[in-house]
Amino acid sequence: MTHDEIQAKIAEVLEEALGCDEDEIVPSASLTADLGAESIDFLDIVFQLEKTFSTDGAPFKIDQGELFPEGLMDNPEWVQDGTITDAGLAMLKERMPHVNFDGFDGTLSKVGDLITVGSLVDFVDRKLQAAAA
């Protein structure tokens, strides 16, 4: 599946899950900051992505925490005073290769804003390629 085909399918999922307009769904749009996604919408989006990209022979399964690491606040090595530490940022970059961290100032509450339409497309693309390899 090409990058454009993945993007088109993801746009359909986001239109349905978030009730946003097609022209709002651009690669740079943040799911939370621009498209109004709340935490529970991510559960809906994950379910819809699994349904959309699964085929009879190849189920597309997204594990909990795979798209977005959980339990960050519980770990003082990663978060101190509401800010992601250097170790935390290194962990995020390793676990979220689909996300562009350029310009990110380390504020914990802004981590969710890093998930953009483009990063979602990249996430699915990487998983499909890994499954095909």
């Binding site: 935490s39 529970i40 977005f68 339990g71 606040m73 519980d74």
Partner: peptide, 12 residues
Amino acid sequence: LIFSHVDQNMSG
């Protein structure tokens, strides 16, 4: 509908 297993919520 979507249901959450609330003890497993993302916000911890």
